[in-house]
């Protein structure tokens, strides 16, 4: 599978001053979440940290694009701080906050984004365990191959697990969001911030590790590096990634 990726934008906790590795080690006690100046105040007040980081990268990714793009959104856990609070309220037999409930669905983020940008294109929302990022990219590829769209906005976001769920963690935790514009390779020359990549996978059942970085962060690191190839492993798949050298 070959795709062109451009306008890749990422955000992670402490991204202003730390590398991804440093940020993972530091933890997330004091975080300055994105301000989101482009969102009107009356709408911004309802946005959770999860929504803020996802909407920030999405907006950055399409900042130079005037036409509406279809969106694939992927997240392993969605807005888990929000949903776990709702579950706790349910368990305590408290009434649920209508606002929190309304924004807790998995497609809330791309839906908010489409409302904010008046985008009427289709939205898919994906979750696939440790493979959520790469399966999201597969869905983007399927959408492009179907011929329905020439470009797709791909948004990925995951927040650090809430304390209640930290006992189940099977990879390193860092609140982060990534967005990019994806298209199929064409005759056209690549744009300045565009790269063509190939990705393939094989089914490969392996025992879970708890100390690896989420695939989304590894992908972003690889994309922004000089490294030509990489392999991402989950407990079910191996993903083989390589960049095309098009600077002929």
């Amino acid at each position: 599978m070959n795709v062109n990726i451009r306008h890749l934008n990422d955000w992670y906790a402490h991204c202003d001053e730390l590398t991804i590795e440093q940020a993972i080690l530091l933890g997330e006690d004091e975080i300055t979440w994105p301000k989101l100046d482009f969102v009107p105040a009356m709408q911004r007040r309802r946005l959770s940290p999860f929504a803020k980081m996802a909407l920030l990268v999405a907006n950055n990714a399409v900042s130079e694009i005037t036409k509406d793009l279809p969106i694939v959104f992927s997240s392993r856990h969605g807005d888990l701080p929000k949903t776990s609070k709702l579950l706790a309220d349910l368990a305590d037999k408290n009434a649920l906050s209508p606002t929190a409930f309304g924004l807790s669905v998995h497609n809330a983020i791309p839906s908010l984004f489409s409302i904010l940008t008046n985008n009427k294109q289709a939205i898919n929302a994906i979750s696939a365990g440790q493979d959520s990022f790469m399966m999201g990219l597969i869905d983007v590829y399927a959408r492009l191959k179907s011929g329905i769209a020439e470009e797709v906005l791909f948004i990925y976001a995951d927040q650090q697990l809430p304390k209640t769920y930290l006992g189940f963690q099977d990879e390193q935790q860092l609140s982060h969001a990534i967005a990019m514009v994806v298209s199929l390779p064409s005759e056209q020359k690549l744009a300045a911030d565009e790269q063509q990549i190939t990705f393939n996978f094989e089914y490969c059942r392996q025992s879970a590790t708890t100390n690896s970085m989420p695939a989304s962060l590894l992908f972003s690191q690889w994309y922004n590096s000089q490294q030509q190839e990489t392999v991402l492993s989950s407990s079910n798949y191996k993903w083989f990634l390589s960049k095309h050298d098009t600077t002929v």
Partner: peptide, 17 residues
């Protein structure tokens, strides 16, 4: 003030509580 229908639900719940 410019509140909307979701605010109405949220506020109703808060007043009730």
């Amino acid at each position: 003030l410019g509140l909307d229908s979701i605010d109405a639900l949220e506020l109703g719940l808060a007043i009730k509580k």
